[in-house]
Nucleic acid binder design. Structure first.
Lengths: 232, 232
DNA sequence: CGGTAGGTTGATTGAGATCAATGGCCGTGG
DNA sequence: CCACGGCCATTGATCTCAATCAACCTACCG
């Protein structure tokens, strides 16, 4: 039970972008036992957070790293549902059915998540109207992600994807450089494109001096052009 | 102010599938002034419910008919975001930004919506824990809609779309017959397909005795086959 | 070292976009 | 009443973009 530590370090730098930061900080300052975060989990790359059809009981806040949710179709092929990045929360899509509709695995060496019992979260919401607004706001934002996956051209999808990623990674550095946390195959899968197509488009965008790519390092060289491409 | 009638007829047959039914019924029985539904609106086909970028203040419950949300791109082409059917609620995607990210128009001759102030809804949620669960559950369900729009083959997308529609129209008749509330163009737009492709696939599915189509009337003849196709 | 996973590049193929023409339906107006 | 135009749907012909198949390269790891 020591895991549910009463001295949860809400001041960890990775927490600063978390939606629950204020809440945790408040609890920590008041020396209240931490009731919201049930436990923290450190995940190795490709380590499963939960499986498709597991009974739903937890929401997870990604403290560091990244997590992807996916399902396996009848032919054994993977279908990616969403990527969750540091500072985001995941698990809400399981509320309705009472079980997780997808499996979730870590995509990074330093993934760390805070496990939050959904029931506790509901209680917390009742005593913290602010938290309620924040959570609804966050959920609302999710509806506006990935709207480009049906764009008519592959390059539009990829450009939009990169722009969204850059936003969500809230590039502290403002220099428009970031590291993809997923493989080309994952990107293609998410965007409804073949791996080879993703690779070719990266090459083309680089040739045209719109981005530079080296492995998973991406740098946006011409933001406006990229936006233009994303729009078609 | 008579619009905010205190004798809102919660017993209207169209209300029975509404998420807020119990809540409204309760309020009606207690002879409480109806605080949740701010006003009701009757919409003609193609009548605008709200415009993209309008300030967000209302959630809408679709009492009858159907509504689509869409945006217009730089070339003037329409991009459909979602279809909302009778019994569903819409507007949550605007919470985060504080304005509607899409325009919403009626798709049916008998569209009727209940306008609910978001602030009132938040208040109501606080006094009705049940309502809170229901709303989060509904929002959660939304995340599981439209997951098929990146399926590799057009026929998979359309099959999945039809299956989802049939579910959501909660076919009272269980005879798997329903009426599409949208044009072929809307379907194609939503699924990332050309109108002609949608039409051709309908024809093929009919030829193969999997569905029968006549204008916007669709009847599922071979549910299992359709499911099989949807999976690939 | 060799093995494997991830990534790139080229050649070929195919599904669906696009272009074009036609027919049905409906509301409008002569 | 019918004629007309607009919208929607269907069908055919052609073209194009991205999938597929295949080879190769690189980095990483036991």
């Amino acid at each position: 039970m020591l895991e549910n530590t009463s001295t949860y370090n809400a001041l960890h730098p990775n927490c600063q972008h978390c939606m629950l930061y204020c809440f945790c900080l408040q609890a920590a300052n008041a020396n209240k036992p931490q009731t919201l975060v049930h436990k923290k989990r450190q995940l190795k790359p490709k380590e499963l957070l939960y499986s498709c059809r597991d009974k739903f009981s937890n929401i997870y806040a990604i403290k560091a790293g990244a997590v992807k949710t996916f399902g396996i179709d009848m032919e054994g092929k993977e279908h990616i549902h969403h990527f969750y990045l540091a500072g985001e929360m995941m698990g809400f899509e399981a509320v309705h059915a009472g079980c997780y509709p997808f499996s979730a695995i870590s995509m990074s060496a330093e993934t760390e998540v805070c496990e939050i019992r959904y029931e506790h979260l509901l209680e917390a919401i009742f005593s913290h109207p602010d938290l309620h607004r924040k959570i609804l706001s966050f959920i609302s934002q999710r509806f506006n992600f990935g709207l480009y996956v049906t764009a008519p051209h592959a390059v539009q999808r990829l450009a939009s994807f990169l722009l969204e990623l850059e936003q969500r990674l809230h590039a502290e550095t403002s220099c428009s450089e970031f590291t993809l946390c997923m493989s080309r195959q994952d990107i293609g899968n998410y965007l409804g494109l073949a791996t080879e197509t993703v690779s070719r488009i990266f090459t083309r965008l680089q040739r045209d001096r719109i981005i530079s790519v080296s492995n998973r390092k991406v740098k946006v060289l011409a933001l406006e052009k990229l936006r233009w491409i994303a729009q078609g």
